[in-house]
Design a protein around this nucleic acid. Structure first.
Lengths: 253, 253
DNA sequence: AGTAGAAGTTGAACACGTTCAACTCGGAGG
DNA sequence: CCTCCGAGTTGAACGTGTTCAACTTCTACT
């Protein structure tokens, strides 16, 4: 391999940044960090090129110039590589979404910009993302959107939705304000689910769906001010509080 | 093996009943049907006892007194065994749900009865069902709820929702009548998703969720008559028509 | 009855994700 | 300069789902 320089401690993207130890090793030497990044980058490149299933751990190791066991030293499983990927995509999405929403005040437009940005960022990895969504459904998987491991990343994404609302001119029942971001997150997840199935070039159909559902969602939120439906909204709000937020898993351990 | 009797053609549960060739073989001899059923029953028993992941194809084959290759002659993959399981659960659900709804006329009550019946039927297989939902998300899997293979079963389930509405005294905008069952089916799927995560004994939390969402859904449907929100409902209706119904996959091949 | 061909059946072999006991290596302490 | 020791590294080995060429059994037809 290339001669490793003196072991000066580089900051880089450490685990402490996300606040959770995702993988097998916490954070030790600088050389370790480089190795880990090398393996991850190689993996993502191969995933993008050949798809997740067709990319073997042996191929990743070989391409990265490492042994199979060494890859497992840094990543607990093949799935853990996806978790790292998800973090990366989310990070890029969060950054770009805030910028994309900034010029607009209309909630529908802001939501639309938010979601389109997500598609922009995720599009190269569609086939790959299928695998992510697949594993995300498994409650036992660290990839589950409800798992403690993915909480930091999830919270960041939900926060974007919160800002989408706060930065808009939308009017709604203040009683439902707190859980609104979670509701929008569910809309987001529904879009993602559709996107995974979408086979149209450039995810055209998904973008169309975003364009049509975003105004609907904004309108529905606006309805919360009306007396006739307010009880319904309050009930829905309570439902979210009772069933989504309390524990990490809906069933309560 | 036991001496096989004379090869008289028995009706039994054939593929022609579902209208789709789910597995590797269509429908041939009576002995073949028996063999297939034997393998499936054994598999489901082991799945229920040990869980899906821990049950190996070798174990199924051994327990059924068959070779591994023979199991693969009848079921294209381990996943196909789940498909068969899903069909069976759905069949039982359909039958029981209709009976459970019959005494009631209130839509909320009928929906609730419908969904509780589903939980009753599916409850023994919760861990197992996780695997089903997991694979169901993969668009390439025959298990996908949108795949042609599962269409017959899915249609039967959706039809139950249709009857839930038709047999009720609920009033709603006739313009959305046609797609109402699909909407209810999505509610059903959401409940299933929650149930998969639910760890409470007897799926108590999921039942609670059903009790609270069913009246909400019924109320929302009732709202469709009001002028203020009717455009929203029409838009949603059109959305379902455009994005869920046209092709087998949302993206359109 | 005999026989060709289809249906059914077998288990060894393959590729994969994953594990682990053994090895290497760098640097801290003597 | 030597010598530990733990972080880092290795690849053979394991158990899994799946495949397939070869074999056996059954059925239809002469």
């Amino acid at each position: 391999m290339e001669p490793s320089g003196p072991p000066e401690p580089r900051p880089g993207r450490t685990d402490s940044e996300t606040g959770v130890a995702r993988d097998r090793v916490e954070n030790t030497t600088a050389r370790g960090d480089e190795r880990k990044a090398l393996i991850l980058d190689t993996a993502l490149r191969l995933f993008e090129r050949d798809g997740y299933e067709k990319t073997t751990m042996r191929a990743i190791a070989k391409e990265a110039g490492v042994s199979v066991g060494n890859a497992y030293y840094y990543f607990g499983s093949k799935d853990h590589l996806i978790q790292a990927f998800y973090d990366e995509v989310s990070e890029r999405h969060v950054a770009q979404a805030l910028a994309a929403m900034r010029p607009h005040r209309d909630l529908a437009t802001r939501l639309s910009a938010d979601l389109h940005t997500w598609i922009d960022v995720a599009e190269p990895y569609r086939e790959f993302a299928t695998q992510f969504v697949k594993n995300a459904v498994d409650p036992n998987s660290p990839l589950s959107p409800f798992s403690p491991e993915s909480k930091p990343t999830r919270d960041k994404v939900i926060d974007v939705h919160r800002r989408a609302v706060l930065g808009s001119t939308a009017k709604y029942d203040p009683g439902i304000a707190e859980n609104l971001p979670d509701l929008l997150w569910m809309h987001h997840m529904a879009i993602v689910l559709f996107w995974v199935y979408d086979r149209s070039p450039g995810a055209r159909r998904t973008r169309e769906l975003v364009d049509r559902t975003s105004p609907m969602v904004a309108r529905i939120i606006g309805l919360s001010r009306f007396k006739v439906v307010r009880p319904l909204f309050r009930e829905a709000d309570k439902l979210i509080r009772d069933f989504l937020l309390p524990g990490d898993e809906p069933g309560g351990a």
